Computed example of a mutant assay.
Amino acid sequence: MENKDINISDLRKLINILSDELEKLEGKNVVVLEDDLYWNILDEELYSPYHEPAQLTMGSLSEDWEFLQKVVNGEREMIDYDLYKLASILKLLGRNNTIMEK
């Protein structure tokens, strides 16, 4: 990978495209989180590919979404860790082929 920089405007464009595709889903204005619990690998181990992870924690998509809703509803400011919670939800959507026809 030559350039490791991520342009924020490109990131915004990708998020907007994904959002547009999700909104196009026929007859759907919600995405069902069919699964809830997931394994979480600590950052120190996640970004150390030459060592097998020794410590796993458990995450909950429903709890992540509930936490993120406080930002959406203006009950709290966004924090860096919210990106982790959103990423977990996006991973499930990607795994479930949410925007592709089944």
Rank of each mutant, 00 (worst) to 15 (best):
L37F: 05
S19P: 00
Y38V: 10
L46H: 12
T57Q: 12
Q55N: 08
D64R: 04
G59Y: 02
G27W: 11
M58A: 02
G59V: 04
L46E: 15
L25R: 15
E52Q: 12
L37G: 00
H51Y: 07
V30I: 03
E44R: 03
S48W: 04
L33P: 02
K24V: 00
D36M: 06
S19Q: 13
L56R: 14
E21V: 00
K24Y: 06
A54V: 06
T57F: 03
S62Y: 04
L42C: 08
L56P: 09
W65S: 09
D36K: 03
E66G: 01
L37V: 04
E21H: 08
K24N: 11
G59I: 04
N29A: 02
V32D: 12
L37K: 07
D35L: 10
W39M: 06
K24C: 07
N29F: 10
Y47T: 08
E52W: 09
S62L: 00
N29L: 03
Q55V: 12
L37N: 00
L25A: 04
L33M: 09
E66Y: 08
L61H: 03
H51C: 03
K28D: 15
L22R: 11
D64L: 05
V32G: 04
V32M: 10
H51R: 07
Y47K: 04
L56M: 14
E26S: 14
L56F: 15
L25S: 02
L61G: 04
W39Q: 07
E23K: 15
L37C: 00
F67N: 13
L46I: 07
L18W: 08
Y47P: 01
N40S: 00
Y38F: 15
W65H: 10
L46W: 12
A54W: 01
W65F: 15
D35W: 03
L33D: 03
N40W: 01
S19H: 12
K24Q: 11
D36H: 05
D64S: 14
N40H: 04
E26F: 14
L42M: 13
K28P: 10
V32W: 06
S62T: 01
H51S: 05
E45Y: 10
L42Q: 13
A54E: 08
W65P: 00
G27T: 02
H51A: 05
E21M: 09
L56Y: 15
L22V: 12
A54I: 06
D20L: 08
H51I: 08
D35G: 09
D64M: 05
E34R: 07
L56H: 14
Y50V: 06
I41Q: 00
S48T: 15
W39Y: 11
I41M: 02
D36G: 05
L42V: 14
Y50G: 00
S19C: 11
V30F: 06
E44C: 01
E66S: 12
Y38L: 12
P53Q: 13
E52C: 09
D36R: 03
E52S: 13
E21D: 11
V32N: 09
P49V: 10
D35F: 10
L22M: 14
H51Q: 08
D64N: 15
E34S: 06
S48E: 10
V30E: 08
D36L: 05
P53T: 14
F67T: 08
T57P: 02
D20M: 06
